[in-house]
Write a protein that binds this DNA or RNA. Structure first.
Lengths: 205, 205
DNA sequence: TCATGGGAGTAGACCGGTCGGTCTACACGA
DNA sequence: TCGTGTAGACCGACCGGTCTACTCCCATGA
């Protein structure tokens, strides 16, 4: 279905696909899915249109690949932190979000998590892209809920909390902070998020 | 500069402008500023292109008019609640947000606050539209901060809080909840927001 | 009283540019 | 020679915006 990565022919071809994805991630995060035409992605990547449609069936399919890539990248970044058994669950969670903050700080200030960026475009996103966004959200939600359950088991948070619901709230706060950052062009919103969640909401540690 | 409202000639002309604004508010809230072409707005309003450019200088100018209209509508809705001196500040604030929740509930679930909707489009919004969004945010922020100061004066919240910063956090949470609602097509996210903010964050009342 | 001129507003054909997507031609290694 | 991938001209649809033609109302003045 999707072209398989080449085995013998060197890396020029992989390069093309990878260049497209990198350009797409950058430009879509900055301008949104509908706000950026293929021509611009192509120009930025230095790839002709024919090559694009060799690797991807449509702009939509390209978008979904980008969403999944974005999730995988973030997961890779965060996994070692989350699975570090030397620190408590809440502290691990905090570190994971701090990684996200640092990421936002290091990029151009307009650059924001692609998944969040696409989330508010849902109204004019196609059904399949929307589904991909939703799916990643659920995965993140489950991941956070898992950590919260650990925290509950170790007594770091009260047994009365619903981990799934609390995870949803955390994710939702993070998204709000991301919009705020986007408007104000200032990562301070993410600091406010960290303060709020870890000092006041899950506090006393 | 802008065409003055007609004084003597009845209301057909005002009607045209109003119909355009109503259609624009509905369609832009659903599809975003860039996700919806003028032709669609025109068709929905039953107004020819010539009339549109009679009333508005450009799509951009139209967008700014919509943002300001959205703000005014919400302000009118919320003002009586916020200025009701019979209830405490925090309770008034809660009521105002609950009004927002009810509004979201009554509309089609895709329909969301226009200002929030445009906020994440900042990347591909023109400078002037972005400025309008930012301006409305600051006005809301100031409004909330004012209420919080009252709450501080009456001892409902601690004197250590920074009202402006806290107002920013509240607004940011609200936006996160709005995105969440958009993705899940479910207003439960707004309930979570209300619980979090008023039962836990500003709690004990 | 009524002809008339002009501004307000309606109506939609039309413009160049850009959109996502298709198509053919070609380079190159196995 | 055939499959893989590059290259870009080209397509119809649609974008925001312009332009001309037209209707209608009413202010003016003899």
């Amino acid at each position: 279905m999707t072209p398989t990565p080449p085995q013998t022919s060197g890396q020029q071809d992989v390069d093309t696909r990878e260049r497209l994805l990198a350009s797409g991630a950058e430009l879509f995060a900055e301008k949104g899915f509908n706000g950026c035409g293929l021509a611009e992605v192509l120009r930025h990547a230095g790839v002709p249109k024919g090559s694009f449609y060799h690797w991807f069936g449509s702009k939509e399919e390209f978008g979904i690949a980008l969403i999944e890539r974005s999730r995988d990248e973030y997961m890779d970044l965060v996994r070692p932190v989350l699975s570090d058994r030397k620190t408590g669950p809440i502290q691990r969670l905090r570190k994971a979000f701090e990684l996200g903050r640092e990421h936002a700080d290091s990029e151009a200030s307009t650059d924001v998590c692609l998944v969040t960026r696409l989330a508010l475009e849902t109204g004019n996103l196609s059904q399949s892209v929307l589904a991909a966004v939703k799916c990643v959200h659920q995965q993140w939600n489950a991941l956070i809920a898992q950590i919260l359950r650990e925290a509950q088991a170790s007594g770091e948070i009260g047994p009365g909390e619903d981990p799934d619901r609390l995870a949803g709230v955390l994710l939702m706060l993070w998204e709000g902070a991301t919009i705020r950052m986007q408007i104000e062009r200032d990562a301070r919103a993410l600091d406010d998020f960290l303060d709020l969640v870890f000092d006041r909401l899950l506090g006393r540690n």
